[in-house]
Design a protein around this nucleic acid. Structure first.
Lengths: 251, 251
DNA sequence: CCAGCTGATTGATCCAGATCAAATTCGCCG
DNA sequence: CGGCGAATTTGATCTGGATCAATCAGCTGG
């Protein structure tokens, strides 16, 4: 499992899609490099200036919380760099990761005034944080923006429905293959397109996302490697037989 | 398992929340009895008249399809009476029911131009069907309506997230208890509030919703009955120990 | 009133994936 | 380098829920 340089570059790219996170507070929305991917892609210069006025740029380090399930939802968030794990816990500690948020993802679609899930950083993460109140006021008079938010909610819902199918009816092998193929697609969508798939989350995170144990995830990946479907590298996997993986994910 | 009269009335109520389904084509939106529950609750008289102009009232009988996954999504739907099963299939026939739609539910939040899941009737069902095109045009100039649709999408997303937790991390016993408690809440929300819970869907439907087999659903319900938590009646269950059921659903 | 059909229940057995238990490897810091 | 804690892999065993296989109960139509 040698260090993979292409992979390292891939991870670095996700991390720093915003060139200088430390100076995020001084960055302008109009120069934001995930704008076209995010809900802000629907805003013109004037809207952007107003959006920037109500947004705060926040930076959190690995495993720090962005917000916690059950707390009063004072803010909405727009991920600008890094990856977040979104999860729900049962009282006895069992965890379900309902998704991984990537740069451009909007975390704010909620029916109640409390967060329905928790979110924390995998590696360092930058977000735009807006007070719910200001955000509500902002969108009130901008129908096209609301339409954009709706598209994002619809995409999120579709992903959730796919995940229900995966969790309820797929085998361990199919779960892992689907996850790898789907994750690669999402990385491609944000501009990280290569055959080496970056997996910045831990095996435990993957297990909690797929409704498996860490041992099953590890064994299945090892078996895929034995069967020459992929190679496990530091921080990810290199897909050797994408056709087979896609077939497994579909079936 | 004697016939339960209260239960029969409960089922009848769901079926005929629109008093005379056969005359639905002549009903007016302004007299619609699920309006306040549905997205139309945000419309005033003028909007309603226009909405009615673009809506067609459709009636389908048991197991008929409303639409099918993969087809071009020409229409959006608003359920006015009855219950629909929403599901996804794998190529080999494995099925995941992603939800059951009740009167007032809106089926139209989708990110692509194709249906992401199939929907068909459990018993007879009435819907308002609108062409996607006309609907898109209708909402374009009505921001408050878009806001309402957003609330519905957010609620649907929250239910999907709960279901992911259930599918990924709960035991069979917890799945059944959660389902019963959650279903009772949803029935209460549409005005059917009683301790006897109507279950118009089959055991197979319940199994496919919870990621279980029909045998496990049956055995678990039988055990709950043996343990005096509930009584199985024709078309549903009567909850005897709601406290215990709620505890199981939470834990 | 009964034959036949469909859906539900019950019983016996099996197995995919969980659990328990060590290694082994990796990342990091002195 | 070398040592140490955390993450991952690997191995042995167990088990919750699946699968296979009969019944059984309700309806429906004759």
């Amino acid at each position: 499992m040698a260090v993979d340089l292409a992979l390292e570059r891939a991870v670095a790219m996700i991390r720093t899609i915003s060139p200088n996170p430390n100076r995020a507070n001084f960055g302008r929305c109009s120069a934001c490099n995930v704008r076209s991917l995010s809900i802000c892609g629907a805003l013109d210069q004037a809207d952007l200036a107003e959006f920037e006025r109500i947004a705060r740029h926040i930076h959190v380090t690995s495993n720090e919380a962005l917000f916690t399930a059950g707390q009063i939802a004072h803010s909405v968030h727009n991920l600008t760099a890094g990856i977040a794990r979104l999860y729900k816990l049962l009282p006895d500690g069992r965890r379900q990761i309902i998704g991984f948020a990537l740069p451009g993802d909007f975390l704010g679609t909620a029916p109640s005034d409390r967060y329905g899930y928790s979110a924390d950083a995998i590696g360092s993460v930058s977000v735009c944080r807006l007070s719910r109140e200001a955000f509500t006021h902002f969108i009130a008079q901008r129908p096209h923006f609301l339409l954009r938010i709706n598209e994002f909610a619809a995409r999120e819902l579709m992903l959730a429905q796919e995940q229900m199918l995966l969790l309820g009816r797929r085998t361990a092998e199919e779960k892992i293959a689907s996850f790898l193929v789907g994750w690669r697609e999402r990385l491609a969508h944000i501009g990280d397109e290569r055959q080496t798939i970056a997996l910045p989350m831990s095996r435990q995170d993957i297990a909690d996302h797929l409704g498996l144990t860490i041992e099953t995830v590890s064994r299945t990946l090892t078996r895929f490697e034995r069967e020459k479907m992929l190679v496990i590298v530091a921080g990810g996997v290199r897909l050797l037989d994408a056709t087979r993986a896609t077939a497994m994910a579909a079936a």
